[in-house]
Nucleic acid binder design. Structure first.
Lengths: 132, 132
DNA sequence: TATTGTTATACTCTATAACTATA
DNA sequence: TATAGTTATAGAGTATAACAATA
């Protein structure tokens, strides 16, 4: 069995847990991650968002467009640089993220509950060695 | 740190290893997996291929079309069921898969070499508990 | 009626390239 | 010239729905 396959299978199972947690919302993993990043970095630029997400600028823009169209985030002009936007969660975005975070964390913990506490620690340590 | 994120990061690293192994070939993880499945199950039907891959029939068909268009696989009529095709690797498909398997396995082992042999065994055991 | 393959369609993710406005 | 954002385009993956041929 390849590492790649085994990892992929486990990650698909984790995606399933995420899908259960976000059922009823059109939220995908990248969108959820973007919300989390915006919450932790108010005023971040689109380019910086793309860098953190590990995607191209254009991808960050489409992601931002989607969030803005649904009233979850907003662009604000930066006085010090007319080229860049500052991105912020709206009240609605913060509320949704609050709800989703609880549900995602809950499902994540249930997913991890297949391991004992000691196994969880060891597993996360080994993941850290594989993807530093 | 969520399990989901940690797993995703490690899996992206594994995908990178796969990409290095298949550099120069337009082979993706699902295409590689399909080749492996066809090698192990000569004459398998498209529907069965889709089931093993965990995707819809239509996806298995587009995958098959791609392989057939490049001369890597072929469809043969089944005498016992005029509805279904039997799928087979061509000689060219077998040759390519042979080359790729060596390279993918090599990169997979290099990826896993970030862990000690004992850690590798434990890691695969824990992955098995998470995604049985 | 159920199944196989097929086609059409749609959405998401990702990437590159070219363009604009600004620095 | 370099950067931020934008737009266009493309490929890949995945899914559903409807259809014809066959079982």
């Amino acid at each position: 069995m390849h590492f790649g396959y085994a990892l992929r299978r486990a990650q698909i199972a984790a995606f399933d847990a995420f899908a259960s947690a976000t059922a009823g919302h059109p939220i995908t993993p990248p969108r959820y991650t973007a919300l989390v990043i915006l919450e932790a970095n108010p005023g971040i630029s689109q380019s910086a968002l793309g860098e953190v997400l590990g995607t191209a600028r254009s991808g960050a823009m489409m992601l931002t467009n989607w969030l803005v169209a649904r009233g979850l985030a907003e662009r604000r002009h930066r006085p010090e640089d007319a080229r860049a936007w500052g991105l912020y969660l709206t009240r609605r975005g913060k509320t949704l993220l609050g709800t989703l975070k609880r549900r995602v964390l809950d499902h994540d913990q249930r997913f991890g509950a297949k391991l004992t506490p000691a196994e969880r620690r060891e597993f996360l340590r080994l993941l850290g060695k594989l993807a530093p």
